[in-house]
Design a binder for these strands. Structure first.
Lengths: 105, 105
DNA sequence: CAGTCTATGGCACTAAGTGCTACACTTTAG
DNA sequence: CTAAAGTGTAGCACTTAGTGCCATAGACTG
């Protein structure tokens, strides 16, 4: 489902990538567009993966939820597959997956 | 609205804080609960603040959205006050606010 | 002028996320 | 032995954040 913004983001990136390459030397600030190329792709988050992630971080659902600024109830639903993290939630989860709970402290 | 999980998280933290203090020496892993005490409180995100944040990072709505894994449409709505970031989105925003766009790359 | 990037705006729709409550299980304390 | 607290599951009613699509308009550039 996250197909539109995914593709149009990639489109924007690829389109501008050529430009940037052509320009050669460029300002760090405008280079933001290029940075998007380096965005770590977000993978699906299965219930198992979420629970594994949380237990890896040795956190209860309540504490884990506090870190992510969501309700404990939601974490439970994620882990039971009742609700599926998406958008910002998914990003946050994969961020924790990659860098650990500390980064979101 | 984020009152329940906020308070019950704080409750859990405060309750256990005493325990932890009493115990004295403790294992890094179980100390997770204590970590929650150090969670940076998330502030309200007004439309102005969001836009200021994005422009500070020199990103277009599209690129900004890509970083947060949301749609450009939503970023626009945030900045116009049509929709209000919450939960994970809010956390992500205040994370960018504090540490910059790079950390979510 | 054509093309691209930018942002706004609206509208229909889905499901993520909240809030609350009750239940069962385990561990710890008294 | 028992009370208390922390843990996770479960369900239900409800709200609104977030998606998707598309049409519009301004700015900038070759």
């Amino acid at each position: 489902m996250p197909s539109k913004h995914r593709s149009d983001a990639l489109a924007a990136i690829h389109e501008t990538a050529a430009d940037l390459h052509r320009v050669g030397g460029m300002d760090q600030k405008t280079m933001r567009k290029f940075d998007a190329l380096c965005l770590t792709p977000i993978q699906e988050m299965t219930p198992k993966k979420i629970r594994a992630l949380r237990t890896r971080e040795k956190a209860s659902q309540t504490v884990f939820a506090a870190y992510l600024n969501v309700t404990p109830s939601l974490v439970s639903k994620w882990e039971r597959g009742e609700k599926h993290p998406q958008g910002a939630s998914l990003k946050l989860l994969s961020l924790v997956d990659k860098k650990g709970l500390e980064v979101v402290a």
